[in-house]
Design a protein around this nucleic acid. Structure first.
Length: 632
DNA sequence: TAGAATTGTCATAGT
DNA sequence: TAACTATGACAATTC
């Protein structure tokens, strides 16, 4: 059942495309409105144009609609929507349909062919020179606009010997090629670009970004061409076959037929003439543009650049960055047209902003600070330590920290279990790490420890006495009936009560306060050091993570830059080919060096003259004159 | 024996 | 104001 539906769907698409070729628009909205869901099953079959490549899946899931990427309904919806868009693009008017098919053949052609390239075609060169001889694009513009509307005037510029065959063999056109247009285009490009991008991950010199900055910052078309050529010269030769830089319409059709299997040469020429005829049928969608716009307004309408842009969807689908580029940057390239390719540097700046912003976000989002570690459950926070009720529990561990009787703390990062073991405070010794006690202090004497005496009298100490801390020994010497732990850990109220109730001497009170102060400060020092180590460790981990993320983003950036270069180059080639086939009022082809295509958001393609540098120089002269006038 | 690591202590600022 | 905490600095000790 699914197979039958699939076949029916493909047949419907082919029929729609066929009807579109003859100028009949087929609206299949009702087919996709949910009443009939069979398009959802297109993805299930291998014969579907869209299921043969996973690009739509990747793109659709990256469209950012908040639906789970694996949702089958979502995938089906977007596949259906894409099919609808494709059919609409092919449906009306006639020229986009023809142009779409031509793009398919051109892109899918294998092997470069320069026979009819604009640069090598002497006829075009002559006409270009003639057109360029006027040095007035406006004159050409006005004539061309009218010419394009009339159409038949242009027909003479194309060979028409195969036009009759076109009508006869139109039914034999491999319509599936049209249905596969964007898919094949993506496949071919993606077969080439990954081979280009893969070495970018490993072999790209460090100056790649700089070169690409230069590339994208070039506003002059010639410079852009040069940089593009330089860039592509470094790329794998497969890009030549994938993009078919210098393939003319006819050659593209020939090579394309070979790519799709054996086809008669007549069919190739027929298809070529079909494209030519479609070009002759250009309709001016806005005749007033010749007056209002500095260029010709040609209703090319809906160049399938979306399919070109789609190729980047898979390339960059692994990240949101690629998605943004695919959806925004490339669409803007499409809209701005070839003349505005210099603004790609803005997009590169966008990339830079993404990088920097990502880094800044990461910095700000790290949430790691010296303060944050305080709240870490692994480390006792200051609030915990400040609580008097928790002192016995907390500082009981602190006794273990200094309990060199049991075990030595490991070197390096302090072990938390070592720092905070649950040791009975009453049984543990406070510490004897730093100071060995004097035997004199074991006596009930008020003499302070003299460090110079310690080495001489260590031999007379008992083992347990040597393990006593200095304060412990002082307490013993002062006959204080409390251990250091008790003194330190008891609440302040209790400590005050002890001081009041035991009628201590002032020296004893001072010692008790000092013991308590030193003990608490020791714990504080331990906590402080542990927090510092935690902070350092956390920062180091954060640095490692950010460095890894930075490397990943840089790789994605380089990959995206290469993709953008490939797309820009293809856009330029397509524009050149299209312009070379357009005619002005006198039947002369447009000079691709002087005109450019701009694709509007509504799918309309407008031919506009390229701004000559002379304009800038004249403005510069004006400014110079103004400066001179000001000086005078 | 020099040097690093550990630890206690002091001083001080802040709470 | 006292108690407490946090932390830098210093010194003693250990390895």
């Amino acid at each position: 059942m699914q197979l039958a539906k699939k076949d029916f769907t493909e047949s419907l698409i082919q029929l729609t495309i066929l009807l579109s070729l003859v100028g009949v628009r087929v609206d299949i909205d009702s087919y996709l409105t949910g009443v009939y869901p069979p398009l959802a099953e297109i993805n299930l079959g291998p014969s579907s144009a869209y299921t043969q490549t996973p690009f739509h899946i990747l793109r659709d899931t990256l469209d950012g609609y908040g639906v789970h990427p694996k949702c089958p309904e979502l995938d089906s919806f977007f596949a259906s929507r894409r099919l609808l868009d494709e059919v609409r693009t092919l449906g009306s008017p006639r020229f986009p349909t023809q142009l779409s098919a031509w793009l398919v053949h051109q892109v899918s052609s294998t092997g470069p062919s320069t026979s009819n390239s604009p640069d090598t075609n002497p006829g075009l060169e002559n006409t270009e020179n003639e057109a360029g001889g006027t040095n007035d694009p406006l004159s050409v513009r006005g004539q061309t606009n009218t010419e394009l509307v009339q159409g038949p005037c242009v027909a003479g510029a194309f060979p028409s010997e195969d036009e009759v065959k076109v009508k006869e063999e139109e039914e034999a056109v491999p319509l599936t090629q049209l249905a596969h247009s964007s898919t094949l285009e993506q496949e071919n490009l993606l077969e080439g670009i990954p081979s280009l991008s893969e070495p970018a991950l490993h072999d790209v010199p460090p100056a790649t970004d700089i070169d690409w900055n230069n590339l994208l910052s070039v506003t002059d078309l010639n410079d852009f061409d040069t940089l593009i050529a330089e860039r592509l010269s470094e790329l794998d030769s497969d890009i030549n076959s994938a993009i078919s830089q210098d393939v003319s319409l006819h050659d593209a059709m020939v090579t394309n037929s070979g790519s799709f299997g054996p086809a008669p040469a007549a069919a190739e020429s027929r298809t070529a003439n079909q494209q030519q005829r479609s070009l002759l049928q250009l309709e001016s969608t806005n005749s007033s543009l010749s007056d209002s716009l500095p260029g010709m307004a040609v209703g090319l309408a809906a160049l399938p650049f979306a399919s070109v842009c789609n190729l980047t969807g898979n390339m960059t689908s692994q990240s949101a960055l690629g998605d943004c580029l695919d959806e925004a940057v490339f669409d803007q390239i499409n809209q701005l047209g070839l003349e505005s390719l210099g603004t790609i540097d803005n997009h590169l700046n966008f990339l830079e902003c993404l990088d920097s912003q990502a880094f800044e976000d990461l910095d700000s989002d790290s949430g790691l600070s010296l303060e944050s570690s305080y709240g870490c459950p692994a480390s006792p926070g200051s609030s915990e330590m400040s609580s008097s009720s928790s002192y016995y529990e907390e500082e009981g561990g602190a006794t273990g920290y200094s309990s060199e009787l049991d075990s030595k703390p490991p070197k390096g990062i302090m072990d938390h279990s070592t720092l905070w073991p649950s040791v009975d405070p009453g049984e543990s010794v406070w510490h004897n790490h730093s100071y060995s006690s004097s035997p004199l202090l074991t006596k009930p004497s008020l003499r302070l420890p003299c460090k110079t005496e310690e080495p001489e009298e260590d031999s007379g100490l008992q083992l347990d006495e040597r393990e006593l801390s200095r304060d412990e020994l002082r307490a013993r010497a002062m006959c204080i009936p409390f251990s250091v732990l008790q003194i330190v850990n008891m609440p302040v109220e209790e400590f005050m009560e002890v001081l009041d109730s035991h009628s201590f001497t002032p020296e004893q009170v001072t010692l008790l306060r000092d013991i308590r102060r030193r003990g608490k400060n020791k714990l504080a020092a331990q906590n402080c050091r542990k927090r510092k180590l935690d902070a350092i460790t956390g920062l180091q981990e954060e640095v490692d993570r950010l460095q890894a993320q930075r490397d990943r983003l840089l790789r994605e950036k380089r990959l995206t830059a290469k993709t953008m270069g490939a797309v820009a180059h293809q856009f330029k080639q397509l524009s050149r080919d299209i312009l070379s086939r357009l005619r002005d009022a006198s039947g002369r082809p447009l000079n691709p060096e002087r005109f450019t295509l701009q694709c509007g958001a509504n799918g309309r393609v407008v031919v506009q003259p390229i701004r000559q540098p002379a304009v800038t120089t004249s403005s510069g002269k004006k400014t110079d004159k103004r400066k001179k006038e000001k000086k005078q």
